[in-house]
Design a protein around this nucleic acid. Structure first.
Lengths: 225, 225
DNA sequence: GTAAATTTTAAGCTTCATCTCAGGCTGCTT
DNA sequence: AAGCAGCCTGAGATGAAGCTTAAAATTTAC
């Protein structure tokens, strides 16, 4: 899950980035409306978090431009103003939800989940064969036996399973899981695929991740085409 | 935490169910007073949410019957009427709290939490393995031997145990235990985890708090997954 | 007002997740 | 069948995350 935060206050931006990364989101930051809009339009984010009062281009304008470009990405706006007009204004501009500052991190997370829920539901539940993964608690179960994964291992497995029965290209994986946008000749993916396969094998879920030579990887739901 | 919602309007019922499930509650639904009462009496719910105006048996009657059967389960009633008499009437019938429609989901959540907190206190059911903690008296027992904790140590342990078998992220811990919303670079948590581990170890409850590197901590109920 | 207890900060140390690299293997292509 | 590109995997470097301790700051108790 890849998020973009457009926020000019470094303190809040940093806090959000840290907290959300702990929740396994890949987080990008923009410190003003203009660069934020650029990033939002050039990359494929799962959600935008936009402060209302930002330099260069207001949050509301960013929101309008994003919608004008045809993107349906969920937008959550942060606002210090809490008047009804402001909220209505924001939602009219194309935002999906808003949250008043100061806010509880918990509440923000809940609202992010609500926005991402539609997406998740469409992708079916997070399981493949006897493997079940729970993003809320960061736990993975193979049948009844728990598998402990490191954050990166978990992120990779989650991405593959969210895209179950679809081929995940190396470039998409590197973008969504590692948050790397430029072409690079790294072999981290290979290494982490090996790590995952080893742990899955040990838990009796071998052969779940298949290689598509020259393209990437795929996790197939057994018994489906 | 298991909830029962008795509500005839499918829209509201569905909205509540979805929202509450996202908050990790297990939610059952009943669409009229009669079946709702049956379910309430046959299952062991942690809380009931009851609309006042429902078919087959009014909310107030459900409430009375539940109490008559000797159950002390917290009941939160939903009402469109907001006159004082109504509230008094409801509370007299055995309800613990009420909320007026239309309501904010957040407010409902807050009120649910209040009711469940009271329940936890009364139940005195906070334990993990041979460790028992009593929030009312601020005492902690490892088997029969009492452990003395400072207030912060206690708060941290209580939070971890209330969220037993779930990973507690650093941000959540810092929010719930320290009530800090915008500080990411402190090592208080580490220090207090060390304090707790040392005291637990001395009391024979070693290895209760496990580290999930890059994420946070977890207390597991031994013998469970 | 002082002493004790508690909480927090800071710093050195340890462990482990992450990533790079190199050599080996696999399976396409010709 | 040989060559080659893509993939796998073990070993090791790096650096960040967490652990521990000591001491400073703050609160509480007497």
């Amino acid at each position: 899950m890849r998020l973009l935060i457009i926020e000019d206050e470094p303190g809040i931006a940093g806090f959000l980035k840290d907290g959300l990364e702990e929740e396994y989101f890949a987080v990008d930051l923009a410190y003003d409306g203009k660069s934020g809009l650029d990033m939002a339009l050039t990359n494929d984010y799962d959600l935008l978090i936009v402060d209302w009062m930002i330099p260069a281009l207001s949050g509301i304008e960013v929101c309008r431009q994003v919608r004008k470009a045809g993107s349906l990405v969920p937008i959550l706006f942060l606002t210090a103003k809490d008047t009804l007009e402001d909220v209505v204004f924001g939602l009219d501009a194309g935002a999906n939800d808003y949250i008043k500052k100061p806010f509880e991190f918990e509440e923000l997370l809940a609202r992010i989940r609500v926005q991402l829920r539609a997406k998740n539901k469409a992708d079916d539940s997070l399981s493949a064969g006897s493997l079940n993964i729970n993003p809320a608690t960061h736990q993975v179960f193979a049948g009844s036996c728990e598998i402990t994964l490191t954050p990166k291992e978990f992120a990779l497995l989650e991405y593959l399973i969210r895209n179950k029965d679809r081929v995940c290209t190396r470039s998409r994986i590197i973008e969504h899981v590692w948050d790397i946008h430029f072409d690079s000749d790294t072999s981290v993916i290979d290494v982490y695929i090996t790590f995952l396969r080893r742990k899955l094998e040990a838990a009796g879920c071998g052969n779940l991740i298949q290689t598509i030579r020259g393209v990437g990887y795929i996790v197939r739901e057994p018994g489906m085409l």
